[in-house]
Amino acid sequence: MDLSESLQHRYTAKAYDTGRRLPDDIVAQLKAALRFSPSSVNAQPWHFILADDEAGKARVARGAAGAFAYNAPKILNASHVVVLCARTSLPADYLQAVLDQEQADGRFAGEEAREGQRKTRGGYVTLHEEAGDLPVWTQKQAYIALGFLLLAAGALGVDATPMEGFDAEALDAAFGLSAKGLAPAVIVSLGYHAETDFNAKLPKSRLTDDVLFSRA
């Protein structure tokens, strides 16, 4: 399946087959898609919570109550569920950990390159802190990771359901997110759709090229 076919095949699953589980090698590739997603100045301002058993999925499903109860079956019946969280702050110790990892991975030819990267990343963080929009900036980065996860799922023949319909306070309480400097951005269920999934049988609908694109 080439990329165009994967894009045509990918869709938002509405019901999951509880009898099918993602193989470990597929899960590893999906995790790699998240880990290697790009982010501004390589800040990696995110954290991913993976639920791969009944207890974990039930914990995530605490966020799908009340007005969002319609999303609970998509969480509980899927094979795996990921909560993509954005960091609400980027403190010095976190930025240092990122820099140290880059050093360990051989990113710097010398101290000058290391210091240049530290200043550049720190400058962008300070810019957003002073503008008061750092949480918005980090959430934008989390959505880049979401795009990579959905594309990887489509390429691997995995069905997925991204969900913004959840109670952020309930999810925060379930995982103690705010105390960890995290905010939930989006929940993604992963697995294989059930035969009852009406959306699997519907054709894709997108605006045409002449509406979406123009020449510079």
Rank of each mutant, 00 (worst) to 15 (best):
100 D>H: 05
101 Q>M: 11
101 Q>N: 10
101 Q>R: 13
101 Q>L: 13
102 E>S: 08
102 E>F: 11
102 E>M: 14
102 E>H: 14
102 E>T: 02
103 Q>S: 12
104 A>C: 09
104 A>L: 14
104 A>H: 11
104 A>E: 14
104 A>Q: 15
105 D>R: 12
105 D>T: 06
105 D>V: 01
106 G>L: 09
106 G>R: 09
107 R>E: 11
107 R>K: 13
108 F>W: 10
108 F>P: 01
110 G>I: 02
111 E>D: 14
112 E>M: 08
112 E>C: 04
113 A>F: 03
113 A>K: 10
113 A>L: 06
113 A>P: 00
114 R>C: 07
115 E>C: 04
116 G>Y: 07
116 G>C: 01
116 G>S: 09
117 Q>R: 14
118 R>T: 01
118 R>G: 02
118 R>N: 08
119 K>Q: 13
120 T>V: 12
120 T>R: 15
120 T>Y: 15
120 T>F: 14
121 R>Y: 03
121 R>D: 02
122 G>L: 03
122 G>Y: 06
123 G>K: 01
123 G>D: 03
123 G>T: 01
123 G>S: 02
124 Y>A: 07
125 V>C: 08
125 V>L: 09
125 V>R: 02
125 V>W: 04
126 T>V: 07
126 T>S: 13
127 L>K: 14
127 L>G: 06
128 H>V: 01
128 H>Q: 12
129 E>D: 14
129 E>I: 02
129 E>T: 06
130 E>Q: 15
130 E>W: 04
131 A>V: 07
131 A>L: 15
131 A>D: 14
132 G>A: 12
134 L>M: 03
134 L>E: 02
135 P>F: 04
135 P>H: 05
135 P>C: 02
136 V>H: 13
136 V>L: 14
137 W>Y: 10
137 W>R: 03
138 T>S: 04
139 Q>E: 15
140 K>T: 08
141 Q>N: 09
142 A>W: 00
142 A>H: 03
143 Y>P: 01
143 Y>L: 13
143 Y>T: 00
144 I>L: 15
145 A>T: 07
145 A>D: 03
145 A>S: 15
146 L>R: 00
147 G>C: 11
147 G>P: 03
148 F>R: 10
148 F>L: 08
149 L>A: 03
149 L>V: 01
149 L>C: 00
150 L>P: 01
150 L>I: 10
150 L>W: 08
150 L>T: 03
152 A>Y: 04
153 A>E: 11
154 G>P: 08
154 G>T: 07
155 A>C: 15
155 A>T: 11
155 A>G: 08
155 A>Y: 05
156 L>K: 10
157 G>V: 02
157 G>R: 07
157 G>D: 08
157 G>H: 07
